[in-house]
Design a protein around this nucleic acid. Sequence first.
DNA 1: TTTTGACCAAAATTTAAAAATAGTCAAATG
DNA 2: CATTTGACTATTTTTAAATTTTGGTCAAAA
Lengths: 200, 200
Amino acid sequence: MSTVDDKRNQIIEAALKRFSHFGIAKTSMSEVADDLKLSKANLYYYFPDKFALIEAIAYRIIDESDAAIEKAFDEAEGTLDLLIRMLEMKKAYVEKYYMLILNLHEMNIHEEKWKTLAKRLFQREVGTISRIFEQGIARNELVTFDVAATSELYVAMIRGLAMFCDHAAPHALIDRDEIARIFEKQKQAAAIVINGLRDR
Amino acid sequence: MSTVDDKRNQIIEAALKRFSHFGIAKTSMSEVADDLKLSKANLYYYFPDKFALIEAIAYRIIDESDAAIEKAFDEAEGTLDLLIRMLEMKKAYVEKYYMLILNLHEMNIHEEKWKTLAKRLFQREVGTISRIFEQGIARNELVTFDVAATSELYVAMIRGLAMFCDHAAPHALIDRDEIARIFEKQKQAAAIVINGLRDR
DNA sequence: TTTTGACCAAAATTTAAAAATAGTCAAATG
DNA sequence: CATTTGACTATTTTTAAATTTTGGTCAAAA
């Protein structure tokens, strides 16, 4: 790994710490720079703007979780098991990166660049779910169906459950209990969906 | 109907018009009173406070929609058909009362009274879904399952889809196209859920 | 190639004043 | 007695101005 990549990684890690602790809006680029004893100007040498840093972090997390899912693909016992493992992982991420993920949702999503980022992250999750479904079909565990559409629906459903669940206010702070409750509902939903797609 | 009930109804209708047009926060009690050529003080003779008026409106709408569902119960061809009819009705309400429903969601839900109202409306919807599921089970169309838990999950899922869908920002204004798209996803979700519960 | 201090414009925060609004009440009306 | 009202207040919400913070640039240094 080149020295510049190494520096970029250091920055990503430092920023990730602050973002997940205080949220994106509440951490300034200077603070991230200070943590690493760099000047702000130097930080901008590695990332053209704040958004690029956020993007890098987002993709870093997704890549990590993709790698984890890759492993689960071999270990899991069936489609539902895979889906539940994925939910578990996401739960762990939510707990770990709390504020970051909260912010990522309620940011200035109106702006085009945020929309496209959100859409890409969404599509990536849909892609993973698609692969899981495809495998289920290939193994004759599931009936054949429109994988693309159903995956999209599944991800939307799961995310919707996270948004809604009972803490009615979209912006309300979510505690660990709430996360656990959401996770339970998501597992139930996954079970029902898979049951609806199962080959019998 | 007593004369005081009649007056209360007039007030509810006038308020409903304004609420669904401009939203709750943006219509003052004076405006509602003016529409009916009453003094504000007189309006407060019929409703102790603004929240009571909002509550009355919410229950009015729910009651209406319950009556409509009651009719559908006899006409519908099966459980899925019933669920879809219910979704259609809700879609119509969203289109009709636009701002009101939007507001109802993003209001000061943190306050206890709002929470309890939201919870009650939710539970009422869950109750209706429960009846639909029970009927499906009684007719041997569905397998037996935990109706209470599943109904709650179903309503949460459907609402979650409405919140999420793709207009990522919770507060973004939703247009008719978006409503239609949400409706489609909800129908798909209903179909998959019912498929998962079907007795075969 | 990497790093920095000095700098700027735009955005966020704070503050105080002004306006609007929910809700009250004694008195009037019928 | 049931209904209505104008006048009043306490609290929010809006507005606007002053101030600070922050994202981002750049020429020059290491």
